[in-house]
């Protein structure tokens, strides 16, 4: 992959979580509102860019046998930094996201990109890959969060979008709503891809 492809592949071709079908746990758990989805996406993007950078820098130093352990140490360090920074600068958001911020450590997307991309590619490509996949993830989470918030609460980023007479569809902000929303989006994307004759998902 060249630089331009690397920079854009996360936005449609490998769009997480829909294409990669990784990182579903935060995608389901924190997307009750658009703001939470966006916050989670940005935190993951930050961790992805820098974990890819450090792992790519260290790829010739880290012995194969302890590579996963080393990746996890790097990722966990970055996640704790994000957690502390969030508490220091965006306290209410960090309260809302709660346990899901530390859980970024075990987000499969991050370890997946480290193993599949950063450990084999030079630093600038790895950082571009992190940015691209991270932005894709933020977009998807914001989209899922927006749909759930608009239908479930009747607001978007806290602003009312429906008149008062609208009865919010409370089901959408609860756990089953997350599954429903994610599943329908996944189905729509696959139908669209098939319509265009693209087959990204292996059968």
């Amino acid at each position: 992959m060249n630089f331009r492809q690397t920079l854009t592949h996360g936005l449609w071709r490998d769009l997480p979580p829909f294409r990669l079908v990784l990182g579903l746990c935060p995608a389901l758990a924190v997307t009750a509102t658009a703001e939470n989805g966006l916050g989670m996406g940005i935190a993951v993007t930050f961790v992805l860019i820098f974990s890819n950078m450090f792992i790519s820098l260290l790829r010739k130093v880290i012995p194969d046998k302890v590579r996963i352990a080393s990746y996890i140490v790097v990722i966990a360090t970055l996640v704790v930094i994000v957690e502390l920074a969030m508490k220091a600068f965006f306290f209410p958001l960090s309260q809302q996201l709660g346990i899901y911020i530390p859980l970024i450590v075990v987000n499969c997307i991050i370890l997946g990109r480290a193993e599949a991309f950063a450990s084999r590619n030079p630093v600038h490509l790895s950082m571009a890959d992190g940015l691209s996949v991270g932005l894709g993830f933020s977009m998807s989470l914001t989209l899922v969060g927006s749909i759930r918030e608009i239908l479930g609460v009747g607001t978007w980023f806290g602003m009312a979008v429906f008149p008062d007479s609208f009865e919010p569809f409370g089901f959408m902000v609860q756990a089953p709503g997350a599954f429903l929303c994610l599943g329908l989006l996944l189905g729509l994307m696959n139908a669209w891809s098939r319509h265009r004759g693209e087959f990204f998902i292996q059968t």
């Binding site: 302890v66 352990a69 360090t77």
Partner: peptide, 16 residues
């Protein structure tokens, strides 16, 4: 190698 990575991480975390 693993020890070095861990101690660098610990240092960075302590600083932050």
């Amino acid at each position: 190698v693993l020890g070095l990575i861990c101690s660098l991480s610990a240092g960075a975390l302590a600083y932050v």
